[in-house]
Simulated assay, not measured.
Amino acid sequence: MFKRILVPTDGSDITAKAVTTAVQLAQVHGAQLLTLSVMEPFPYSAVSEIQPVPPQEFIDAQQRVASQRVEAVCAAAAAQGMACKGHTIEALHAWEAIIDHAKSEGVDLIVMASHGRRGVAALLLGSETQKVLTHTELPVLVVK
């Protein structure tokens, strides 16, 4: 049924549940597993010329963390005998990057985690998962 499954990762414990689910689904369907970690762009500020961290140091750290997150997902897949294709992308809005990447890679299922916040907390904090659900036409499996 599914041929290409994308599981975005932010390295959190809740995302680990989504990774486990995505690996299992990929095994059952004989699908290709893809993972994505979105990096924040450097917060350039016109207000202050003094930056606490030099831009290249910030960028290198973001790349290192994003690569570790992707490698962790691919390692989880490899432990189950599955191949995994990983990417890191810099984007202002993670949800947009996830949707764009899913489209460009021909993904037919996105597996994402949710903290399960409700009420005012969900309204105020927002959710990358909620934004992906709202803005994509692709199927999204939400793991709590």
Rank of each mutant, 00 (worst) to 15 (best):
G126C: 00
A78P: 11
P55H: 12
A16K: 09
V142I: 12
S114D: 06
D60H: 09
K103Q: 10
Q24K: 12
I5K: 01
A83P: 04
V107E: 03
A61R: 13
H115F: 00
M112S: 05
L92G: 12
Q130Y: 02
K144F: 06
A31K: 03
R69T: 02
Y44S: 02
K103G: 01
V70L: 01
V7R: 02
L141Q: 08
A122P: 03
L141T: 04
M82G: 07
V38I: 00
D13E: 15
A79Q: 09
T88Q: 08
T88E: 08
R64G: 09
S45N: 11
P139E: 03
A16W: 01
T88N: 07
T20F: 07
E49L: 08
A122N: 12
A22L: 10
C84W: 13
A61Y: 11
V73D: 12
V107T: 14
A77G: 10
V28D: 10
F58I: 01
V47T: 12
Q63D: 08
V143W: 02
A94V: 00
R117P: 01
S67R: 13
Q51K: 14
V7M: 10
G126A: 02
L6E: 04
A83W: 05
V28E: 13
L138G: 09
D60K: 13
V65A: 06
V7E: 05
G126H: 01
D10S: 11
L125D: 07
E49P: 05
V23C: 05
G81L: 09
T88I: 10
D60P: 06
A18T: 05
R118S: 11
I99F: 04
I110C: 06
G81F: 13
G11S: 08
L133C: 08
S104E: 15
D100A: 13
M82E: 15
A94W: 01
E71R: 13
T15F: 00
L125I: 02
A113Y: 00
H101W: 15
G11C: 08
V23K: 01
I98H: 11
L123G: 12
V132P: 00
M39R: 13
H115Y: 03
E40M: 15
H101L: 11
D10I: 02
L138T: 09
I89G: 04
R69Y: 07
G106N: 08
F42M: 12
V65I: 14
L109P: 05
Q24E: 14
A18C: 05
G81Q: 09
E90T: 15
L109C: 06
G30T: 10
G81H: 08
I99S: 10
H115I: 04
A18D: 06
T21P: 00
T15H: 01
A66N: 02
A26G: 06
E128Q: 15
A102S: 13
T15Q: 06
